[in-house]
Nucleic acid binder design. Structure first.
Length: 611
DNA sequence: CATCAGCGC
């Protein structure tokens, strides 16, 4: 059985995520003789966990298991070393050479610079489509309209026709597929894209690539618990991947809007893998649930280890939501949580909701949050002129989780009519996705829950008008993400082993009391640092529900949590403890990762500031 | 008062 091969069989094969889940019930994966990890260069969180697990597994099954790791760009030697010198096979691709051109300086404005480059290509070069890499939707929109304008202004008949197409993930599917139809005769296509075009989507016909050298990347800071979405420099691997997009049909050209010296000296060799940029609570819980003997999370052998700080952060979070006990052992609740393909906080919420009798509502909330549907704002004035957007439910003052529940319930009442979504300015795709996720979650939880309760989407409202049960379940599930209001204003500070000053995100529907005061305690779905630190998706909770969490916080002891028996906790830092052992590589310093990201970001900002 | 990538199935 093969996994994740890109063939028409893909649907019958297993994805990384599914293999992980399967490994949960059958850690030895005895039913498989060959396991293929495909697209390993993308270094997704699941790939990295699987790499570590495979390394363990082949020790036990050296005779009857083969592991094949395929990658477009991953450093073969590094992986070979990780797997104690396993053979590396190079399969030459049928890729055509791509000539690279560097600019002499970093442009102060890469949109303008991309624009000039694109026009230059159009006027001077032979036929062939142009792929332009930008960082986000705003840049793409700007680029598309300016490019169209400049092409219009070119002398009539001086060059071939042009078609400019945007391409990014939040584009409706019917617009995305436009890039797959070939250019009309005597017409050059310009595809202005985000990173989707770097790995996920392959656009045929591209001969020229324009690469601004930046990418938008989400990072998690384990010392603050905060996420941010930053524009950072790409890595050399990414730059080469982008260039390679020009050479799929014939020899191509890549215009890099940065000097070769920057590519050589400033760019990181490879992109920082996701495992070093995300919260590890889910992964740590998963590893704990495997029941592998002798497994010590802090010593787990990762290809690129996450920081110790990040692992400890995960342990603290898991403890606060009852997934592990104070000595770091997985609990019964934790085992149930690991069965659900959700963030630990949402899994915990579902389990609590089942106890409290509001499972159906919690399922909906979990599904909608997983789909990350975006509620577009009414700010566009032209819209208001044309047609008034229909009113969305408002969460009845309790906050965003309740609002998301109400939105889904309304859609359910409209018999899941896609027009209901567009009438309410909601992305049909996101809503459909949440419906699918909800169905899947229902099936899983019916298997694992004791005495399953109602799962119908519409029930539960009349019996609990204040959403008390749901909010209580959320309070338990988000015990790791609790905040307390300041006495005199509506700012909050997070409650936990680290305290941050934060505010409710302005888009929240949470309401104050008659004096305008917000609830004393709230739980939040995530902390996001944009212009300031914000709590996104907030739910008001009651003081009495918070007490058990505060108690747990008092008892929290990271030395015990990280598994008291471990040599790690007895004395000094790991790196000094066991030089030369496999653990020496473990738990890279978070500050190393941070400073890399920070440096890449600062270089971007410094350049942006110049313009 | 904000925004922001892609992935998932």
């Amino acid at each position: 059985m093969l996994f994740g091969l890109k063939t028409e069989l893909q649907k019958r094969l297993r994805s990384n995520g599914v293999l992980l889940r399967e490994s949960l019930s059958n850690p030895e994966l005895k039913q498989y003789s060959v396991i293929i990890l495909d697209e390993a260069h993308e270094r997704s969180l699941n790939t990295d966990i699987l790499l570590g697990l495979m390394k363990r597994l082949i020790k036990h099954r050296a005779s009857d298991l083969k592991v094949l790791i395929t990658s477009a760009t991953l450093d073969g030697l590094k992986v070979s070393n990780f797997f104690s010198g396993c053979p590396v096979l190079n399969i030459p691709g049928t890729i055509f050479p791509v000539e690279k051109f560097y600019s002499t300086d970093r442009p102060t404005n890469y949109i303008e610079s991309s624009l000039r480059t694109a026009i230059d290509i159009h006027v001077k070069e032979a036929p062939g489509d142009v792929l332009i890499f930008m960082t986000g939707k705003d840049d793409i929109d700007k680029m598309v309209s300016k490019l169209e304008e400049r092409i219009q202004n070119l002398e009539e008949g001086s060059c071939m026709d042009a078609l400019v197409l945007p391409l990014h993930g939040s584009l409706p599917p019917e617009q995305q597929v436009r890039v797959f139809s070939p250019a009309p005769p005597n017409c050059r296509r310009f595809i202005v894209a985000t990173n989707v075009a770097e790995t996920s989507l392959t656009v045929d016909g591209v001969v020229f690539v324009v690469d601004c050298g930046y990418v938008k990347q989400r990072q998690y800071n384990p010392s603050t618990g905060m996420y941010s979405l930053d524009v950072v420099e790409i890595s050399r691997v990414q730059a080469d991947q982008r260039a390679g997009r020009a050479g799929r049909t014939r020899p191509g050209k890549c215009y890099r809007l940065y000097p070769s010296s920057i590519y050589q000296k400033e760019f990181l060799e490879a992109t920082i893998p996701e495992i070093q940029r995300t919260s590890l609570a889910g992964s740590v819980l998963y590893l704990k649930s495997l029941n592998l003997p002798d497994i010590d999370i802090l010593k787990f052998d990762f290809l690129d280890p996450p920081s110790r700080e990040s692992l400890e952060d995960a342990l603290r979070q898991l403890y606060l939501i009852d997934a592990i006990d104070e000595s770091g052992q997985i609990t019964d609740v934790g085992r149930l949580m690991a069965e659900l393909p959700l963030d630990p906080s949402l899994s915990r919420t579902l389990i609590e909701a089942n106890e409290l009798g509001c499972l159906s509502q919690a399922l909906t909330v979990a599904a909608v949050l997983s789909a990350e549907i975006t509620l577009r704002q009414t700010r566009s004035k032209e819209m208001e002129g044309k047609r008034k957007r229909q009113q969305l439910p408002d969460g009845s003052g309790w906050g965003d989780h309740v609002q998301l529940l109400q939105i889904f319930e309304s859609w359910d009442q409209a018999d899941y009519d896609p027009r209901w979504c567009s009438d309410h300015d909601l992305q049909v795709r996101g809503m459909k996705f949440s419906k699918d996720v909800r169905n899947q979650l229902s099936q899983i939880i019916q298997k694992i829950a004791k005495g399953p309760t109602d799962l119908q989407a519409r029930r539960g409202r009349k019996s609990d008008p204040d959403y008390r049960k749901l909010r209580r379940a959320l309070c338990v599930g988000y015990g790791n993400q609790l905040a307390e209001r300041m006495i005199h204003h509506n700012g909050y500070h997070t409650v936990g082993y680290r305290t941050q000053l934060v505010q409710v995100h302005p888009s929240s529907v949470l309401e104050g009391d008659e004096y305008g005061k917000l609830p004393v305690y709230v739980v939040y779905h995530e902390l996001i640092n944009t212009t300031r630190p914000f709590m996104r998706n907030v739910c008001g909770v009651e003081q009495t529900w918070v007490k058990p969490i505060l108690k747990k916080l008092e008892k929290l002891n990271i030395n015990k949590l990280s598994g008291g028996s471990s040599a790690l906790t007895d004395s000094g830092p790991l790196e000094e403890k066991q030089p030369g052992s496999p653990t020496k590589a473990a738990a890279a310093k978070q500050s190393d990762v941070d400073s890399k990201i920070q440096a890449a970001r600062e270089r971007y900002l410094a350049r942006k500031g110049k313009k």
